[in-house]
């Protein structure tokens, strides 16, 4: 195999691995989106509970409103992450298609190096570069969006922990408030762990 074709083979293998990684990230994001939806319902329940508890749970009420805003922001954030993931999947697929075409065109050039087929190959390589640049840009955007999501979830964690503390002052409602805030905290922690794992994905680190 020539050096050019060996390089193509290595690039194809990397693109294949990239596609696998991005598909896994997509699956993880889908599960986080599902959990984020659950948070929204839980935040609503917390608001109703705080209203029932009245003055005894005033602090908890403020926090549950914040948690509701957080859950909506989280959903928006997940929606933009999903869009970026779809863009990445599409672009990696195009790169894979480019690689196959380039391999076959290069073989054709090696076997029949006419001026026209060389031009076609050159045009194909320009197109490949365009796709690679777009993929690199999407990869950066996705990484940034994941960082933003992670920061947001850290804030959600702080809110959930504060709600747990406030629940202790809920007098006769202390137990149900503690239960709601505990569940909230557990879910935020689950999302945090998922996002943490996604941040370390080799799709971003290139390892």
């Amino acid at each position: 195999m020539t050096t050019a074709l060996t390089t193509i083979s290595a690039t194809a293998s990397k693109a294949g691995v990239d596609l696998l990684r991005i598909v896994r990230i997509n699956e993880e994001i889908k599960s986080v989106v599902g959990v984020a939806f659950k948070i929204n319902i839980m935040a609503l329940n917390a608001i109703f509970l705080a209203k029932r508890a009245g003055t005894a749970a005033r602090g908890f009420g403020v926090l549950s409103n914040e948690l509701r805003v957080f859950s909506q922001d989280l959903r928006n954030c997940m929606s933009s992450l999903t869009g970026l993931i779809h863009g990445c999947v599409n672009e990696v697929s195009l790169v894979l298609q480019d690689i196959r075409h380039t391999r076959l065109l290069r073989q054709a050039v090696e076997m029949a190096p006419t001026a026209r087929i060389c031009q076609v190959l050159a045009a194909r390589e320009i197109e490949n570069d365009r796709h690679s640049v777009r993929l690199a840009s999407l990869r950066k955007q996705l990484k940034r969006a994941l960082e933003d999501a992670f920061q947001m979830v850290e804030l959600g964690g702080v809110l959930a922990k504060s709600a747990k503390i406030e629940a202790a002052y809920g007098q006769s409602f202390a137990v149900p408030l503690a239960q709601v805030s505990g569940e909230f905290d557990a879910i935020v922690e689950e999302i945090r762990s998922s996002l943490e794992a996604l941040r370390r994905s080799a799709f971003f680190t290139g390892k």
């Binding site: 076959l104 065109l105 073989q107 054709a108 090696e110 076997m111 029949a112 006419t114 087929i117």
Partner: peptide, 10 residues
């Protein structure tokens, strides 16, 4: 494709 293209080009 490469094999057909090159043969045809000849």
């Amino acid at each position: 494709f490469p094999a057909v293209f090159s043969a045809l080009s000849a």
